[in-house]
């Protein structure tokens, strides 16, 4: 089924660029980045201007358009922490504190340039509409506008790899088009089961000059998950899914 959808979309994209529906393209970008329901392991590295680094490893599960949860596996100081996102609702569970508290998408549970909405990223199609699409020959450029005011970045400018249909670079912008951060998708890798996507995501920001954050996908695979996994009550038990 997945191959049929991809084939249809590729056929559509073979037509003149102006005929390509931007929102359909964005949906395909979402599906190429990850299956609809999946689990993944990723490493986050925050790099300071002096070269000092801090690393985190997360186990992440996602289901549908608006459900995603992550569990910190390391370092020891963060182990057992979990975060949950249901649409624009976000919670953080810290074992010592013993109960989930609400957090916001603009905060960062790990510090550095990635904020919570970057770490607990939903499908782009669930948060953005394509306002305009350009064809530069080698890449598509999608101009995305947030569907609601609660989305972390009001506008995105996304460069899409024309052959692989995955993002190459995304500029995150405010309503006044001020650049908040740039996200770079690198090292396209075959994770198996038809998942071919960038394994490395880097980000920098004019607001954090000299700082860089990197996210490395170690594993990603499709997985059926119960809706109940994505509830506040289940947050302390996320490790049982591993």
């Amino acid at each position: 089924m997945r191959k049929i959808i991809t084939a249809i979309l590729l056929l559509l994209l073979a037509s003149p660029a102006m005929a390509v529906d931007g929102n359909s393209l964005l949906l395909q970008v979402d599906r190429n980045l990850n299956p609809d329901s999946y689990e993944s392991y990723k490493k986050l590295i925050n790099i300071e201007p002096n070269g000092k680094e801090k690393e985190f490893i997360l186990f992440t599960v996602k289901k549908g358009k608006d459900k995603v949860a992550a569990l910190f596996i390391s370092p020891a100081s963060e182990k057992g922490r979990s975060t949950l996102r249901l649409g624009e609702n976000m919670w953080l569970y810290i074992p010592n504190v013993g109960k989930p508290i609400r957090i916001t998408s603009l905060q960062s549970v790990v510090g550095g340039v990635f904020n919570n909405s970057d770490i607990l990223r939903l499908d782009y199609t669930s948060e953005y509409n394509v306002e305009k699409m350009e064809d530069t020959g080698g890449e598509y450029i999608l101009h995305l506008k947030a569907k609601t005011k609660t989305v972390a970045y009001d506008k995105l400018k996304m460069w899409v790899h024309k052959e692989k249909l995955v993002p190459v670079r995304i500029e995150c912008l405010t309503e006044t088009s001020m650049l908040v951060k740039t996200i770079y998708y690198k090292n396209i890798k075959d994770f198996g089961d038809g998942i071919v996507r960038p394994a490395v995501i880097e980000t920098d920001s004019p607001l954090y000059k000299g700082y860089k954050s990197v996210m490395i996908f170690a594993k990603i695979k499709a997985r059926e998950l119960d809706d109940e996994v994505f509830t506040m009550t289940f947050m302390p038990n996320l490790d049982s899914l591993r």
Binding site: Y41, K43, I45, I47, G51, K52, E53, K54, E55, I57, F59, I73, S74, V200, I216, A218, K219, D239, R242
Partner: peptide, 19 residues
């Protein structure tokens, strides 16, 4: 603990994520 190594070694990450 002031010095850490920056590494993209997938096999090291896979060791760390083993449950």
């Amino acid at each position: 603990f002031a010095q850490d190594d920056y590494s993209f070694d997938m096999s090291e990450i896979e060791k760390e994520i083993e449950k």
